[in-house]
């Protein structure tokens, strides 16, 4: 209750300040038009927040945000029907080669830029006192396809005899793709006998109501349900790391923190309302991303400036294509 009552006034204050600052800044010509956004449910809060404040100052621009998952979002972004194509795609993973191929076939050029960092939280029931951290190897043993680990005493010798029940996002989720890739080693490779739901809320309820539970989902959902869940530290060989916003920003919470992206088609950028929306986002990126109701980790100013330049100079294509590597800043430099 205390945490919540603290969040609300801060949220209201920041929103009002943000709305006030930005209205002051751009009381000029009112634009008219449409900006359609669809994609990852993880990234949606960022674009929804941006849309909300943007529309306060540009009421005649109609911004719509849909949630169809990263893959579903790219399907709409790369639709064969021009009038059904979205302008901006929310993505919690970089575009796949197959999606790039489709874009090329349809003649769609896109600009890619990172907008925030998200961590995946591995959580247990708050009354589970024996499990403080898990190694990547232990997580892999639990989650790999065909795994028969069904009791905590199989996870690590010394853990008590307690049935282990697993919760995780469904297979359409970008969080699922990311977790399986980092933990199991192969994207979408996971055991299937766990409680799967696209609704993070159902996962929170399941884990909070089950003493032997273990689950994972976006860190921001943990932030909103801190009281009902307990975080597990992740040991990637360099000792256990229990994530927090600062730790995720610092880049030591590996391998379970990830960048989030927006993709915008070069055709859409030419439209003034889309350009204005993106400019608005970059002008206020830090405040939007770290708004208490959005709760992601903002990127460095350097990376936001790089994103802005990619838009200005219409630098299209992905930095995650074949033959490219390095961490976030290196890729975009």
């Amino acid at each position: 209750m205390n945490a919540k009552s603290a969040v609300r006034p801060t949220a209201v204050l920041i929103t009002l300040v943000l709305a006030w600052c930005t209205t002051e800044a751009s009381a000029e010509a009112k634009l008219k038009g449409k900006v359609s956004i669809d994609g990852s449910s993880t990234v949606a809060p960022i674009t929804m927040a941006a849309a909300e404040i943007f529309q306060a100052q540009q009421p005649r621009v109609r911004v719509t945000v849909g949630i169809s998952g990263t893959g579903g979002g790219f399907k709409k972004f790369l639709s064969d029907r021009k009038n059904l194509r979205t302008d901006i795609s929310d993505a919690s993973r970089p575009i796949k080669n197959s999606e790039m191929k489709r874009a090329a076939e349809l003649g769609i050029n896109f600009i890619e830029f990172p907008v925030a960092i998200d961590g995946i939280a591995v959580v247990i029931h708050p009354e589970n006192h024996f499990c403080k951290s898990l190694t990547v190897e232990e997580l892999k043993n639990i989650w790999k396809p065909g795994s028969t680990v069904n009791n905590w005493n199989q996870v690590r010798p010394g853990f008590p005899d307690l049935p282990l029940r697993l919760y995780g996002p469904g297979t359409d989720s970008g969080t699922f793709d990311y977790f399986t890739k980092e933990i199991v080693g192969e994207e979408k490779a996971s055991r299937s006998d766990y409680t799967a739901s696209e609704s993070d809320n159902i996962l929170v309820q399941g884990i909070a109501g089950d003493k032997g539970s273990l689950g994972y989902f976006g860190f921001s959902y943990f932030q909103a349900n801190k009281k009902r869940l307990k975080l597990v530290g992740i040991d990637n060989g360099a000792g256990p790391v229990i994530p927090s916003l600062d730790i995720i920003r610092g880049g030591t919470y590996k391998p379970l923190s990830r960048p989030l992206f927006l993709y915008v088609s070069t055709d859409a950028v030419e439209r003034p309302e889309v350009k204005a929306f993106l400019d608005f986002f970059f002008d206020n990126a830090k405040m939007i991303v770290e708004h208490p109701r959005v709760n992601y980790v903002a990127l460095s100013d350097e990376l936001y400036n790089i994103g802005r330049k990619r838009i200005e100079n219409r630098i299209s294509g992905s930095e995650y294509g074949p033959g490219k590597s390095g961490d976030l800043t290196d890729r975009y430099k």
């Binding site: 359609s36 929804m48 849309a51 909300e52 529309q55 719509t64 849909g66 949630i67 993070d200 929170v204």
Partner: peptide, 28 residues
């Protein structure tokens, strides 16, 4: 999932009450 305008005509995009309820239920 997020629409903050009222349709001007039959060709506009829209939000409906059941969808709004569904969207809100899904928030943490």
């Amino acid at each position: 999932s997020y629409v903050a305008f009222v349709p001007d005509g039959p060709m506009d995009e829209f939000m409906a009450l059941p969808i709004q309820i569904y969207t809100w239920c899904d928030q943490p």
